[in-house]
Simulated assay, not measured.
Amino acid sequence: MLNVSGDTEFDVFDRNCPGRAVMEHVASRWGVLVLGALLDGTQRFGELRRTVGGVSEKMLAQTLQALERDGLVHREVRPVIPPHVDYSLTDLGVPMAEHIRALYRQIDRSMPEVLVAQGAYDERKAAG
């Protein structure tokens, strides 16, 4: 199947495209934060949970499992007592995380204008 621009065989706009599920994992509320956090290096579950403020244990576990299944995150269990589990980006995950980090930077640069736009919108809504 061709996408809208015709440059790849996958079309995430098609509900049957297998790439759509990957897009949902990567672009989810927690997926973008987990991938961005792991760009800084390997982290254990607890470290990652502290880095990604506000994520529940359950949601972090589900997010990591989905990203691992997609081949973006590597999970390594260290055979010590108690067991340590390390998470890191795979070679496939690094470029996606780099794009996400670029999005973070763009959002950061745009925040002054975004805050002005939000304020103007809120004023219009309150007045009207």
Rank of each mutant, 00 (worst) to 15 (best):
Q118R: 02
L64P: 14
A120F: 02
R109Y: 02
N16V: 05
T8M: 03
R75V: 09
R49K: 01
K58N: 06
A127V: 05
M59Q: 12
R101F: 03
R75N: 01
V85A: 00
L2D: 13
E57C: 00
L67R: 05
D108G: 11
Q106T: 05
A66W: 09
G36A: 08
P83N: 13
E76Q: 07
L103G: 13
Q62R: 14
D11I: 08
L33W: 09
K125C: 02
Q118S: 01
E113K: 08
G71H: 05
P18Q: 13
L103W: 02
E98P: 15
Q106R: 10
E68R: 11
D122V: 02
Q106W: 00
R109T: 10
R44D: 07
G6Y: 09
V26N: 00
V80C: 02
D14T: 12
H99K: 08
E47N: 01
E98C: 10
L67T: 12
V34K: 06
Q43L: 05
T42E: 15
H99Q: 15
Q65G: 07
D11V: 05
D11M: 09
V114D: 07
G54R: 13
N16W: 07
L67N: 00
V114M: 00
A117G: 15
V4W: 05
R44F: 01
K58V: 02
Y121D: 00
E123F: 03
Q106E: 02
A126E: 06
A120I: 10
K125A: 08
V34E: 10
R20F: 05
D108W: 04
L33N: 07
Y104K: 03
H84E: 09
E98V: 10
G19F: 05
T90W: 01
